[in-house]
Design a protein around this nucleic acid. Structure first.
Length: 397
DNA sequence: TCTGGGGTCCTAGGACCC
DNA sequence: TCTGGGGTCCTAGGACCC
């Protein structure tokens, strides 16, 4: 029996979600004018996270620097992102999708796959998808695209066709007509570098890629990736809709400074801040980390990254920070101005048995106490924010 | 024009062991 | 004294996704 997969993708997710909130608060609908969402609208270094359709028509794109977009369109409306609110919108949209099929894989905050094989037929798939799309619009106030295909790849490619508020199919027999004429860059997993390599070889469309011999392709992009690209370009993908959200494999935080920093005190403060964020996050999920890494990005965007193993898995801020400081000393010469700094942990375990060591730092108890205070403060702040949002929701309903 | 923040997976080379 | 080959772990870097 052929599979029937839906891919549901929120149109300009962050922008739509911010618009919904503003409308609830009685503000004009920013979806109707050139508008964007950016991290920090006042920071020259921030970039665009999402753009409205009128903004896109003016050539404003995601990931474009805000300063550049403002030159294109001086009257551009810029709003800051609001993660707590986005989380709620995302939960609402996932909940509706799940009511259509429990075999659901959340692909990102604004995308999911559902396996509809037992819930509809090829004949009525478009009608069912349209109903889903309308239900989300009526209940939550924002639009989605639904892509339908016989596997995840085709469903995802289909949802990327004309936007917004549309349903598209891409069945296997439609691949030559609907997918092969597209440029290679439109194929999932073909980014800038791979596109460059392929076009340099004269491969411009997905159709040309589909017909390319494996030996040639492997020489261009490596064996493993070549196999995947070959399958995908031919519309084949047998990956399942994975309902289990795998556990995080790494946790990281990074900060870009509004001006490049060179003062070691400033840089150490930034490192401290990201260490607090990362260690708080792993404690929240009950993880301990065995590897700490630090990276430094310079003005020319070159990156130096250093990592090391910890003596034993840890979730203590002070321990992670201590490792990070050593790594920073290796990575940074102490004089070159730094644009961005980041700290990550990986090799995460749920190990809770405390391994006693004769050499255990006697200050460890104090450090843990400090972390408990930090976590308390954080959760109090979160509670306050949740209350604030509940009242917004009430005002809207 | 001047480039955020958070992830995943893959590759390649070196160290070390058997 | 000089040599092979496989396996595993670690680190660094690159490419991709949203």
């Amino acid at each position: 029996m052929p599979r029937i997969i839906f891919h549901i993708d929120v149109n300009s997710a962050f922008l739509s979600w911010s618009a919904v909130k503003l409308v609830i608060e009685g503000q004009p609908d920013i979806r109707l004018v050139p508008s964007v969402v950016s991290g920090d609208p006042s920071d020259r270094r921030s970039i665009i996270t999402a753009a409205s359709i009128p903004a896109k028509k003016l050539g404003i794109k995601t990931a474009m620097p805000v300063s550049m977009a403002l030159r294109t369109c001086p009257e551009l409306v810029i709003v800051g992102g609001d993660w707590e609110w986005y989380r709620r919108c995302s939960d609402g949209f996932i909940e509706i999708c799940r009511s259509y099929s429990p075999v659901l894989q959340q692909f990102s905050i604004d995308e999911c796959f559902i396996d509809m094989s037992f819930r509809c037929t090829q004949e009525n798939a478009v009608a069912v998808a349209t109903q889903l799309k309308e239900q989300i619009k009526e209940t939550l106030g924002f639009t989605v695209n639904v892509g339908i295909g016989s596997n995840k790849l085709l469903a995802k490619m289909a949802s990327d066709f004309e936007k917004p508020d549309k349903v598209h199919t891409l069945w296997e027999n439609e691949v030559p007509e609907k997918m092969w004429p597209l440029g290679v860059r439109d194929l999932l997993w073909v980014g800038k570098k791979t596109e460059e390599r392929l076009t340099a070889y004269g491969i411009n469309t997905i159709g040309q890629l589909a017909g390319l011999g494996m030996v040639t392709l492997a020489n261009l992009v490596g064996k493993k990736f070549a196999e995947q690209l070959h399958e995908n370009a031919n519309g084949r993908d047998n990956s399942p809709v994975e309902t289990e959200r795998g556990e995080a494999k790494s946790v990281s935080a990074e900060r870009t400074f509004s001006k490049d920093l060179v003062n070691p005190k400033d840089i150490d403060r930034a490192l401290f801040n990201v260490a607090c964020i990362v260690s708080h996050r792993i404690r929240k999920h009950g993880f301990r980390a065995s590897t700490v890494s630090v990276f430094v990005k310079y003005k020319d965007f070159s990156v130096v990254q250093k990592q090391c193993r910890t003596e034993r898995p840890t979730d203590v801020t002070a321990v992670i920070l201590n490792e990070a400081r050593k790594l920073l000393a290796e990575a940074w010469d102490g004089v070159t101005p730094i644009r961005q700094i980041g700290l990550g942990v990986c090799k995460l375990t749920h190990e809770t048995a405390v391994q006693m060591s004769l050499f255990e730092d006697p200050k460890l108890d104090y450090y843990r106490e400090w972390d408990r205070h930090y976590d308390d403060q954080k959760s109090k702040k979160e509670d306050a924010r949740i209350l604030a949002y509940e009242s917004i929701k009430e005002a809207g309903s």
